[in-house]
């Protein structure tokens, strides 16, 4: 049986993640309440607005159960807003999961006019640069000892990290046709 991956479907581009998961042969389940977390092999927190997703996550009591699953080793991957929500600190008051030992700067590259795409080399992803789409994107400004930096931009900005079962990317692999990072994440769920 292929891995069953939950995609948090409160707001954002969760449908795009579901589509890519289908393409890599994973089974996807949209998650809107805590019951739907049961039986998952992994969870993706998609792009969107972190303030909206965070507010709804608390409202539906998803934050506690997700923290428990993370503690028990379930692979969780946040893209953009998802990375923000997994961070321990974002420099302002907003609901966070505080899973990965990193500080994140929101809208670090500026407003939409500064959004960009660029090829990024990612540790553990072979086959050349990854087409990374940054939309009003965050960047990681500091990492704890247990956090592995997987990718940086030329200016040194950290844009992909891993802390054991937890993966975070500041960009959106779900907006491209490149399936490698989703395969990598499905691989993480199979290794558990």
């Amino acid at each position: 049986m292929s891995a069953l991956i939950g995609v948090l479907a409160l707001q954002g581009d969760f449908a795009e993640h579901v589509q890519v998961l289908d393409a890599v042969g994973g089974r996807a389940r949209q998650v809107r309440d805590a019951n739907q977390l049961e039986g998952l092999d992994g969870l993706i927190i998609p792009g969107g607005e972190s303030t909206t997703i965070g507010m709804l996550m608390e409202r539906y009591d998803l934050d506690g159960p997700i923290r428990d699953l993370a503690k028990h080793g379930m692979p969780i991957w946040g893209t953009c807003a998802g990375l923000i929500l997994m961070a321990c600190d974002v420099g302002r008051q907003q609901p966070l999961l505080e899973l990965i030992n990193i500080s994140v700067e929101r809208n670090a590259f500026g407003r939409q006019l500064e959004s960009f795409e660029v090829s990024v080399d990612i540790e553990g992803i072979s086959g050349g640069g990854f087409p990374a789409v940054f939309i009003r994107a965050p960047r990681v400004v500091s990492v704890g000892d247990d956090v592995e930096v997987l990718a940086r931009l030329d200016d040194g900005s950290i844009v992909a990290v891993r802390q054991k079962n937890l993966l975070g990317t500041a960009f959106h692999p779900e907006l491209t046709c490149d399936l490698r990072l989703h395969r990598y994440f499905v691989g993480m769920t199979e290794a558990v």
């Binding site: 954002g12 581009d13 960009f116 789409v133 939309i135 009003r136 030329d154």
Partner: peptide, 26 residues
């Protein structure tokens, strides 16, 4: 491990992409 920062701005993917991030929202 380093990559270019001077990426392409204002591409179709980037323009349409922000709207994709707003999906399911108000």
């Amino acid at each position: 491990m380093n990559s270019k920062t001077s990426g392409a701005k204002n591409t179709e993917t980037v323009k349409r992409g922000l709207a994709q991030m707003l999906k399911g929202g108000v």
